[in-house]
Design a protein around this nucleic acid. Structure first.
Lengths: 339, 339
DNA sequence: GTTAGCACTCGACCGAGTTGAGTGCTAACA
DNA sequence: TGTTAGCACTCAACTCGGTCGAGTGCTAAC
C-alpha cells in the first residue's frame, strides 16, 4: 500500500497513539500499541506504520530512541473528524451541573467559569461581548436597615447591578418606592451614558438627597464602563497543576500570568463565530501557550452578539469530552442570555 | 557576657538574619551579615554569636556547612515584639484599596479575599461566622424584561441575596411592589426558617402564581443554609507559586488542596478573638502546613460575633507589613459589618 | 505484507571527583 | 575579656564517565 497517504489502519494506529498519549503524557512506543490496543499486529509492523506516520507529519519523536508523540497535525485531524461527523456527544450532565450554578448576566460569566472548570477539571475562560447602548429598564431602591438602601439597576438585556447606598433614615419603603418609580419613569429606555448625563438635572428636583443621585451615577458609570468593554472571567486556573506537562513551576507560572492579561485572554478566545472551535498549540501564535490547546464554544447573547466560553489545557486533552461539555454549556448560555 | 541569654547585640543580629532570610529565602551566612548589615563586626564574631543563637534555639542549620535559618522560636520572638510594642504601623493604603473593592455581606468575604490577596500578594482567606436566626427585613420584587423579576431578600443584618424568577407577564412594577409590600409586611421580622415554613400558607392566598412563592422559599432556604454554617472564601491561592519554597510542584499542590478543604481552612483561621494573631508553621499542628504561617485579624459582625480575615504564606514572611495590612482591613470590615 | 532479530541511539540513572560556601576552633591581638 | 585572623573541615551542588534499558531502523526470513 501507498506509504504517502493515510489508510484506515494508519488512522487506527494514530488514534491509538493519541489516546494513549492523552492518558499517560509519555511518548508512545510501538510495543505499547501492539500490546495494549488489540491491533493484531506486531510491534515491528506498528513501527513501520509509525515511521510512515512520522514522515506524513502526524507524529514526532522527542529524540531518536524515545517513543512517538502526536503532532499538532495529528490532533487537528482527530478534532476535525470529531467536529465533521458531529461526533460530539450530547452532555446533559454538563448542562445540568452548569444550570444549577449560574445566575444572571455579568455574574454569569464568573460562575460559568467556575462551574466549567470544576466540571472539566481544566482551566475555563468565559467571555462576555461588549454591549454598547445598554438601556435602563428598571431602577429600584430596596430598603435596608439603618439608613441604607440597595440600589438595583436592571437593563433591557437583563443585566443586573446593585450597590448599597446611604439614604435618610426617615425614608421608608413606600417613600423609596415612590422615588424608584419616578426614577424609572424618567430614566427607563435611556442608555447608561444618557443616565449619567441627566443626573445633574435631577439632583436639583429631588432636593438635598444627593447621595442617591450620586449612587446611581456611580453605578451607571460602572455598568457602562463594564458593558462597553469585553469582559472575561477565568475559573480553575490552578487546575493546570494537575497535568505533568506543567510540573515545571516556571511553565506553570508563565501560563498563569497569561491568564491575568485580559487582552491575551481575549485573543485566545475570540475567533470566528463557529459553534465549536479548537485551536491547538502553535495555531494560536502565542509562544507561552505553545503546548496548550484552547477549545471554545460560542453562545448567543441578544441581537446577534456572541460570546465565547472555553477551556484551556495541555494539547494532550480528551477533545471529545471537552467538546461535548462546552457544547452543552454554550447551549445553556444561549438559552439564558439570548433574546 | 553570658552566652545563655539574649543581649541587645544578639537581638540585632537575629533581626538582621530574619530580614535577610525573608528577602532571599536562602540560608544566611556570617559573612553576609557582617557585610550587608552595618554591624561593625567581623564575620568571625558574628559566627560566635550565631553559634550562641543556635544553642538558644533561635537559629537552625539545614546542614553543617550551610548558613543559618531562623527557627519558629525566632519568628515568634520577632512577631511578639511587633505585637507587644504596638509596632504594627497604620496602613491607610490597604484600607483604601480594600474599601473600593468590597460590597455587602456574603459577597464581601469573596471580594475581601480577592482584594487582600491582590494587595499583599499572598493567599488570603476570609471567614464569615455563622449567624443563626437571621431575620428578614425586606423582601422585594424588581421588574425585569420578558416576564422575569429579580427577587431580593434583605436581612436585618444587611445580608443581601437575590435571584431571578419567572412571573406572569402581566404583572407590572406597581403590581410587583404591591406583592412585595404584602410579603414584607407578613414576613419581616421572621427568621429565614420561619419564612420557609410559612410559605405553604401564602401559596394559596396569592393565587396561582406559585413560582414567586417557590422562588422565595428556595432563596430563603439557600440563605438559611449558607448563613447557618461558617463560610470561608479564598483569594489569590496561586500567589503561593511566587515563593521559592513552593517551587516543588508537589508541595504547591498539597498547599492548594488544603485550601479546598473548608474544614481545615476554618481550623487555620479560627482561634482566640484577638485583634491580631500569628501562627507559625508547626504551631498550627497541621503537617501539610508545617512551613507556612498564618496571620489573622478578627473583625466584629453585630452582636459580638466575630469573623477572621487572614493571609497564608511561607513562614518567611514580612510580618510587619502583613500585620499592618490585615489590621487595616479588619477595621474596615468591622466598620462595614458591625452593628 | 508481516514478523523476528539485531545493531544502534540516547535519555535516565548512578557513583566518583571537584568546587565553594560556610562553619568551628585555636591562637594572637587590643 | 572580647574581637579577629587563619586554617582545617564538612557537605550540597555540580560535573563527568559509565551502565542500563526503552525504543528505533534495517534486514532477512516467512
Amino acid at each position: 500500500m501507498g506509504m504517502h497517504e493515510m489508510d484506515a489502519r494508519k488512522e487506527r494506529i494514530l488514534r491509538a497513539i493519541i489516546d494513549d498519549y492523552v492518558l499517560t503524557a509519555m511518548p508512545v512506543g510501538s510495543r505499547t500499541i501492539s500490546r495494549k490496543y488489540e491491533t493484531g499486529l506486531s510491534s515491528a509492523t506498528i513501527r513501520n506504520e509509525m515511521s510512515d506516520l512520522e514522515e506524513l507529519g502526524y507524529l514526532a519523536q522527542p529524540h531518536v530512541s524515545a517513543g512517538r508523540v502526536p503532532s499538532v497535525k495529528a490532533y487537528r485531524l482527530y478534532v476535525d473528524e470529531l467536529l465533521e461527523n458531529n461526533d460530539v456527544p450530547q452532555n446533559p450532565q454538563a448542562r445540568e451541573y452548569f444550570s444549577q450554578r449560574v445566575r444572571q448576566m455579568e455574574d454569569v460569566i464568573g460562575s460559568a467559569a467556575r462551574a466549567i472548570s470544576e466540571f472539566t477539571r481544566y482551566t475555563a475562560v468565559v467571555m462576555m461581548p461588549k454591549q454598547l447602548e445598554l438601556r435602563v429598564s428598571t431602577l429600584q431602591l430596596v430598603p435596608m436597615p439603618r439608613g441604607a438602601a440597595l440600589l438595583v439597576i436592571v437593563t433591557d438585556t437583563g443585566a443586573i447591578r446593585d450597590t448599597v447606598i446611604r439614604v435618610s433614615e426617615n425614608l421608608d419603603g413606600d417613600a423609596l418606592y415612590a422615588i424608584s418609580r419616578t426614577l424609572t419613569e424618567r430614566l427607563a429606555g435611556r442608555t447608561l451614558q444618557e443616565v449619567q448625563e441627566m443626573l445633574g438635572a435631577y439632583s436639583r428636583q429631588l432636593g438635598g438627597d444627593g447621595r442617591v443621585i450620586q449612587g446611581i451615577a456611580d453605578l451607571a458609570a460602572q455598568m457602562a464602563r463594564q458593558s462597553a468593554t469585553d469582559t472575561v472571567a477565568v475559573g480553575g486556573s490552578h487546575n493546570i497543576l494537575n497535568y505533568p506537562e506543567y510540573s515545571d513551576v516556571e511553565k506553570a507560572r508563565a501560563f498563569l500570568s497569561v491568564l491575568e492579561e485580559k487582552e491575551k485572554l481575549m485573543a485566545l478566545l475570540s475567533g470566528p463565530d463557529e459553534a465549536l472551535n479548537v485551536r491547538i498549540g502553535p495555531e494560536m501564535g502565542m509562544p507561552e501557550m505553545a503546548d496548550c490547546s484552547v477549545v471554545t464554544a460560542s453562545y448567543q447573547v441578544g441581537r446577534g452578539h456572541h460570546g465565547f466560553v472555553g477551556v484551556i489545557g495541555p494539547t494532550r486533552m480528551p477533545y471529545g469530552r471537552v467538546l461535548s461539555a462546552l457544547s452543552a454549556i454554550g447551549g445553556a448560555l444561549t438559552d439564558m442570555l439570548g433574546e
